[in-house]
Amino acid sequence: MTRRPDAPSEPLASFAKKDLVDIGSLTRPEIQLVLDTAESMREINQRTIKKVPTLRGKLVANLFFEASTRTRFSFEIAERRLSADSISFSAAGSSVSKGETLLDTARNLMAMKPDAIVIRHQASGAPHFLARNLPCAVVNAGDGTHAHPTQALLDAFTMRRAKGRLEGLRVAICGDVLHSRVARSNVELLTKVGAEVTLAGPRTLLPVAVERTGARVVTRIEDAVDGADVVMMLRVQKERGGGLGFPNDREYFELFGLTPERRRLAKKDAIVMHPGPMNRGVEIDSSVADGPDSVILDQVEAGVAVRMAVLYLLIGASGDE
């Protein structure tokens, strides 16, 4: 029988939220409810027929203003497995200056009466903006360099399955922290549930005042990886200027890349994570990325379960009292 680690001491009876825009708006019991619900969703994904009728007749609109493959597919699969109707709008590279404003796009969409909008946007705060202006549920699928709450939840889900707990886990998050919404959401979630987080990266890629997150901050990756249960490598985000923080890929890999030698500093049973897409040979050595400790593909699988859980909790019920 599957054990359920980290069972909430006070089980929540409901998830009374309109939107999921960031981790900051979730309480610890709410985080646990999402993760527990995702366990049930994961079971569905093992069945012969990986589909339940739960969201029949509901419409989910996926608005992707920024390129994404894995997150968009993950949401679309989650929506279909829950029997929601889904439409996807991909406008990568389109900017407000070229035409319709985000608000107009969203209002036009509202005329189709979606129950939820999933939004990925290059501007930090875009999901908050929609959440404030639209009556439907808004799910943040990554906004600028701000937040990526479903990624943090799926990472936590993956860690909890691998390690049996989150509390007290030693997690090293390494690389381009400055441009990483994944890092921000992960630090927020992990510190909230009692994990010990260490951030590591070149000083040029660490945001100001980052130590106020509650994470330990170091500039030597070895100091972060040493004794860690989880090593999460971040992608160098060259498209956001991450490449300007160091001279070249060779030096970055030499100083900050996760090599097999550095991996050995972590605990023997440590897991290696990466939110993808990876720059092999820049932040991570292929032999580690594809090695036995890598749970990178488990993360992808967890993504569907976690997004099913989030959609179920947000729009499974009517929401009115």
Partner: peptide, 13 residues
């Protein structure tokens, strides 16, 4: 303003 708030909001400082 560049600071703790901009870091949290993920806005360029």
């Amino acid at each position: 303003n560049e600071g703790w708030a901009s870091t949290r909001l993920g806005l360029p400082g």
